[in-house]
């Protein structure tokens, strides 16, 4: 898994609430049997018209907005458990998703793929949207060590929560399988207690 420590980047604003995983990656693209290439179809039906041409109105097609941070509306990633959604976001080049609320399964999937979900207050989220809207070149810094997100232009910042275990995993690029396998003997002992 990719390590994540600190990042400064411009951001792409997706000011839509309740973005579900069917929008992030529609079901018809779930037929692959490996993890690669899902970025191509990220937000497929918002990015492209049915004839395959680009939807110029969609923010990901607006060349003014670039960067590896996605700033999104409330309740991001609701719906299906498909990890393909996290793979698509990662494959497209995003390292961080910022929102005022994340759906559980998406949040876990993102963390398991080295994509950091940063949950901020609705007020701070609005501040981010406003700043990006005003100046698309504005940089945002995400510092995992200090659990801090900062609008570099103004210095406005917020602290975000992350489980300490998951934080260690991200900073070091560890995943849960390694940890679980190191506990196999305890798992086997537990099994013996089951009737």
């Amino acid at each position: 898994m990719d390590k994540f420590v600190k990042l400064s980047s411009t951001a792409i604003p997706l000011a839509i609430e309740n973005v579900d995983t069917d929008q992030i990656i529609p079901a018809r693209f779930l037929k692959a049997t490996n993890r690669d290439g899902f970025g191509e179809n990220l937000f497929r039906d918002w990015r492209f018209h049915k004839d395959g041409s680009e939807n110029e109105e969609f923010v990901l097609n607006d060349t003014k907005f670039q960067g590896s941070i996605l700033v999104a509306g409330d309740n991001f990633g609701c719906g299906s458990s498909r990890e393909h959604a996290a793979w698509a976001i990662h494959d497209f080049g995003f390292k961080v998703v910022v929102s005022s609320f994340f759906a559980d399964i998406f949040k876990g999937n993102a963390l398991n793929n080295g994509v950091l979900p940063v949950q901020v207050s609705p007020e701070f989220l609005k501040e981010l949207f406003d700043a990006i809207e005003k100046d698309s070149k504005t940089e945002i810094q995400v510092d995992l060590e200090n659990q801090q997100i900062t609008l570099l232009a103004t210095g406005a910042s917020a602290i975000f929560e992350i489980n300490p275990y998951k934080k260690t995993c991200l900073i070091n690029g560890y995943d849960d399988i390694d940890f679980l396998l190191s506990n196999t003997s305890e798992i086997e002992a537990f099994e013996k207690t089951l009737s």
Binding site: E83, G108, N112, N113, D176, I177, F179
Partner: peptide, 22 residues
């Protein structure tokens, strides 16, 4: 409950998951 594919792999490997109690 539903899990992502990384967690499917974790359960394959250990019949267990690492979770915060909801």
């Amino acid at each position: 409950f539903g899990i992502g594919t990384s967690q499917v792999a974790q359960v394959f490997a250990s019949q267990s998951l690492l979770l915060q109690k909801p």
